[in-house]
Write a protein that binds this DNA or RNA. Structure first.
Length: 283
DNA sequence: ATCCATTCCTGTACGC
DNA sequence: TGCGTACAGGAATGGA
């Protein structure tokens, strides 16, 4: 379940194989994703040099020299696997391999997405910022412009729980269910606090912790979550364990509350998603 | 304008 | 063993 660090890792993994290369083969094997893969639009990318790759929120943007940009979202289970010429004997296509890309260096790149929540589209680069999914996005959490005052402004009038709020892409992008729980734990904020009632001091701490956890995860190459694969086809190598995520009933890694007394790390459901937290550390 | 539940989808884990 | 069911969740949607 890729969040910002995983998307960043995938983008960085694709970069050496795509930047400066051209696509000479495109096979849409199974078009059905969140929106159908636009095979005809993809064709205009054939034989055109790739200028650069970047990440915006959880989207990977691949810019081509003809002023077209390929936009990819990995959804829940999307992955790219890169096969250099020597590895292509290993390719075993399955029914969830939606797109096979071949570059002029004879590298094959396969997009697989079993749960089909991903998305692939092509837009004019100069119209990219008005492309609906990108247009509504809030600030990049790792940008220096993402500050406590920006977060505060984006939370004004918001009565939803802070956990739900920081997963809202209009408030801040890239924070998914896992890092939302982790960042709130590190900041000592209860996930159920009403968003516009979090104190300025705690908001500043939250901004710091969001940046910290995302950077740490990027540094470790993405998380080890069940559906995540890097472009070499391996699971992540995110070595540190999560503090609270998926650790219901375990002891809080920080405080000395006894499990017998407190029940340890709690799990609650907010907006249909699991939230994990320590009732003692987070107020 | 904001909020909330629902929808999409399928592999995995679990209980009986 | 096998079957059924609940669950995982990013983002869009529609109704309140």
């Amino acid at each position: 379940m890729p969040e910002l660090p995983e998307v960043e890792t995938v983008m960085k993994g694709l970069q050496p194989f795509l930047s400066g290369a051209e696509i000479i083969g495109l096979e849409v094997r199974s078009p059905q994703l969140r929106i159908p893969i636009p095979a005809r639009k993809l064709k205009v990318l054939m034989g055109v040099p790739i200028v650069k790759l970047e990440r915006r929120a959880k989207y990977i943007l691949i810019h081509f020299a003809n002023e077209k940009t390929m936009i990819v979202h990995l959804g829940m289970t999307g992955s790219f696997t890169v096969y250099p010429p020597k590895k292509q004997a290993d390719i075993l296509l399955d029914r969830h391999d939606h797109l096979v890309i071949t570059t002029d260096k004879n590298v094959k790149i396969i997009y697989r997405d079993p749960r089909r929540f991903g998305m692939i589209d092509v837009v004019d680069t100069d119209k990219m910022s008005s492309y609906k999914p990108l247009q509504i996005l809030g600030p990049e959490p790792l940008d220096k412009n993402f500050t406590a005052s920006v977060l505060k402004a984006n939370l004004s009038n918001r009565k939803i729980a802070i956990k739900v709020a920081i997963m809202d892409q209009k408030v801040v992008v890239g924070v998914g269910n896992i890092y939302a729980s982790e960042a709130l734990f590190l900041a000592g904020i209860s996930p159920t606090t009403q968003a516009n009632e979090v104190t300025d001091q705690k908001l500043a701490l939250l901004v710091d912790k969001i940046k910290f956890i995302l950077k740490a995860a990027i540094k470790s190459g993405g998380s080890t979550l069940r559906d995540y694969r890097n472009v070499g086809g391996e699971g992540g190598y995110f070595q540190f364990k999560f503090s609270v995520y998926d650790r219901e009933g375990e002891a809080c890694p920080v405080c000395d509350c006894s499990i017998e007394k407190t029940g340890g790390i709690r799990r609650i459901v907010q907006a249909g998603r699991s939230t994990f937290f320590c009732k003692t550390c987070q107020t």
